[in-house]
């Protein structure tokens, strides 16, 4: 069994090139991912767009001049649309959820990754179960308790509800961050006389910070995307971008200009996150928690 260097090289290089099918497939996926946004973007800059025109019958900038009321983006950025309020609500809720979620997930992730204890795999499994239970079951179930506690229609209730789907992800991601980290550094620092607090702050924190960032961004994204729990717990009293978009697409027939604009704004956190993670973080960090 002797394999010449040449043979091996040939094998490797042929296995490294795309087959024609794969090429078409990649092109198809690329198109399928990006092109669908085009009509939504066009719609967001249209005034009216009637059958059978392929491009808007009238563009937004053509109509905004002589309109008595703010149209399109002008309306979006005006008070009566409440989009500004929705953005502030969405971001505020997501920030609080991210902070709380990180704070409660860090200690759990640390012991799951580093300590041996009885029932560890059970704990790990149960902390993940909220991911497999339908949102609607959680939402309907939680509603009655929240009603009794007077937590509906306010921020506190929504933030608590958002912790349910975000915490499992956070614990998972942070656990894998701790697992990828050697405990030796901490022990060395302790041997050298650092207090536990100092060790945590000067040794552990800097090492897990990128992981926390990634997990935090992910929790932020999940929170900004949640519709059903916000809708149930908020009782229509607190408007967020997802509840606003839901009202716009509820009929399942074509969007109006405002609907398309809300959809684009709601896509922004994900887009920004994609750029940040791609630029500054190891890309596989999200996959890490899930068998990666």
């Amino acid at each position: 069994m002797t394999i010449t260097k040449n043979q091996r090289k040939k094998q490797a290089s042929s296995g490294n090139r795309l087959s024609p099918y794969q090429r078409y497939y990649l092109i198809f996926i690329g198109i399928a991912v990006v092109v669908p946004f085009v009509p939504v973007i066009i719609r967001a800059f249209s005034f009216s767009w009637f059958w059978p025109s392929i491009l808007p019958t009238k563009w937004w900038w053509e109509a905004r001049e002589n309109a008595w009321q703010p149209l399109g983006w002008d309306y979006i950025f005006s008070g009566p649309s409440h989009v500004g309020e929705a953005i502030i609500n969405t971001v505020f809720i997501a920030i609080v959820v991210t902070i709380v979620c990180t704070a409660i997930s860090l200690p759990a992730a640390r012991v799951i990754a580093w300590e041996k204890f009885r029932g560890k795999s059970a704990v790990e499994f149960f902390l993940l179960t909220p991911l497999i239970v339908a949102d609607i079951a959680i939402g309907l179930g939680i509603l009655i308790t929240f009603l009794q506690l007077g937590l509906t229609g306010g921020y506190v209730g929504i933030i608590l509800a958002h912790l349910i789907p975000t915490t499992p992800y956070m614990v998972r991601v942070l656990t894998s961050v701790f697992q990828g980290l050697s405990r030796d550094y901490e022990e060395q620092a302790r041997l050298l006389g650092a207090t536990p607090l100092k060790t945590l702050w000067f040794i552990t924190m800097p090492m897990i910070l990128p992981g926390i960032m990634a997990g935090g961004l992910f929790a932020f994204l999940i929170s900004t995307n949640i519709f059903l729990l916000t809708f149930f717990v908020g009782q229509g009293n607190i408007v967020t971008l997802p509840t606003m978009l839901f009202a716009k697409v509820i009929g399942g027939s074509s969007l109006d200009t405002i609907g398309a604009e809300v959809a684009l704004i709601l896509s922004l956190p994900g887009l920004i996150l994609l750029i940040i993670t791609e630029r500054f973080l190891k890309e596989e960090i999200f996959a890490k928690g899930f068998g990666g």
């Binding site: 669908p36 946004f37 009509p39 939504v40 719609r43 995307n225 519709f227 997802p242 978009l245 839901f246 716009k248 697409v249 399942g252 027939s253 074509s254 969007l255 609907g259 398309a260 959809a263 709601l266 896509s267």
Partner: peptide, 9 residues
């Protein structure tokens, strides 16, 4: 929900 909007359009 944005996916839904995209499919609708």
């Amino acid at each position: 929900l944005v996916g839904v909007a995209v499919v609708i359009e």
